[in-house]
Design a protein around this nucleic acid. Structure first.
Lengths: 257, 257
DNA sequence: CGATATGTTGATGACTTTCAACGATAGTGG
DNA sequence: CCACTATCGTTGAAAGTCATCAACATATCG
């Protein structure tokens, strides 16, 4: 069985058995469950813990004072919320459950304890955090430059590729629990326009959605339609110079689960 | 004379003389000059150094393959480009000079040396990095939810407040070297619409621009017009629990320059 | 089964882009 | 110093994209 955190971090660098044990300690720490739509963190809260999504989807969002809402990011299983956020005195946005969600809550002390002896794991967590930031940048491009059609197809590409990196895709399909209202708040469009544009995406034969499952018919066409360039996800095993010794000392990652 | 880095970091926590000396070492390291519009970092480059803007303005930006361009962030004097970027193998975007700019280039080794003995300074740099990320989030809200008028007035507010935090404002006015083309690439609007909307902002008596100087006539009105909430800049001396001993042991920051 | 959330459709209008032309400004070289 | 050229900002007209409003259909959940 795959652990989505470990699965994803190993897209960066090959972890040692120790690293993996440390990641599991984080993953298993102080689970908290939330119902869909419940807030996990609220604006104004003092940040006390780092969070890690164990199961389900969550999102960051922010309101304008007149009620307009923008979703700033999505968290899928294995995603880390705020590695370093202890430094700030208060949160400037919300984090909420999109689906029913289980979150691990990791204290600063535990984080330090686990990473102290595992610099490779710490490095991998930093990588994860930089990729989050890069994803935010790509969303900026999405809102600033892409058309409605491109925004939606881009979102579909990204979700599929991220779930794949977490070991949660199945061929060309994956879970897809987002409502059109959520898609509207992510893409900065009205729900009406999302409905119409999503229809166009389906009618072009690019994707299909059945029972909250996204099925991609032609990934290359979907990428072309959204001008997708996945560099920002940095999934090219970029930390390979840090790789744990895979050949002799320990079995390779793939052989261990 | 004010150093913009130190001036800004002290909006987070009060630095000791040692911290300030460390910050100055970073600030003075390996200066490189660029002409306006020159690229400082290119997509695909391997990140080797952390950069710090000493003088002038720079920006992050990204292209879509068909040439559409989105500016992702602005750097003003005292801003740090990428604290931790060594971890990635290659850059996924560009950094360019907006005006003629001087940049300090800080190697990983120097950064580690300077921060090793100064955890307070390291913490302040992390704060700076988190504020950068939070600013990106606010830009997402800008593009996703705000109208053209609100986007432009929001940008004006932010620039003024950031320059103020760096000690580079003068009453209600500050430098403002952005062309309307830049504003268009920041706000995701066409240059034509920027021109027209900016006129409306001026005709409402909110601001005035003369000789690349922005003069704000009514900051509260400007904030109201853009639904501005400056929480994301985290300028509330949030790291005060880390403050260097100001009373007895050393002179307070304000008394030292 | 009723209540609420979600998705669809049509009509209308607002906001924003595109295209094209022109004036103003600034830097360059003779 | 002036002509030359490129950049920058402005304006008008036309078209396109997307939002809003309202009604209805479907699905989901207690």
């Amino acid at each position: 069985m795959h652990n989505p955190l470990i699965h994803k971090l190993e897209r960066y660098t090959r972890l040692s058995a120790d690293d993996r044990a440390g990641a599991l300690r984080l993953f298993d720490e102080r689970h908290q469950r939330y119902r869909a739509k419940d807030d996990i963190v609220r604006e104004g809260d003092e940040p006390r813990v780092m969070r890690l999504v164990v199961e389900g989807w969550a999102c960051r969002y922010k309101y304008l004072e007149d009620g307009r809402r923008q979703v700033l990011g999505l968290f899928i299983p294995g995603d880390v919320c705020d590695l370093n956020v202890f430094i700030l005195r208060e949160m400037d946005h919300f984090i909420a459950a999109v689906t029913p969600v289980t979150v691990a809550q990791i204290s600063r002390e535990l984080l330090e304890e686990v990473t102290l002896g595992n610099p490779r794991l710490l490095q991998a967590l930093w990588w994860e955090s930089l990729v989050n930031t890069a994803t935010q940048r790509e969303w900026l491009v999405n809102l600033g430059q892409r058309t409605a059609f491109e925004r939606i197809t881009h979102l579909l590409c990204e979700i599929y590729l991220r779930l794949q990196a977490a070991g949660r895709s199945d061929g060309l399909s994956c879970e897809f629990p987002l409502t059109q209202t959520m898609i509207a708040d992510i893409t900065g469009l009205s729900t009406v326009h999302v409905s119409r544009t999503f229809q166009a995406v389906r009618e072009d034969g690019l994707v299909e959605i059945r029972d909250r499952i996204l099925v991609i018919h032609d990934l290359d066409a979907l990428k072309a339609a959204s001008l997708y360039n996945g560099n920002y996800l940095h999934l090219g095993h970029e930390g390979r110079h840090l790789d744990a010794n895979g050949g002799a000392g320990e079995p390779a990652a793939a052989e261990r689960e």
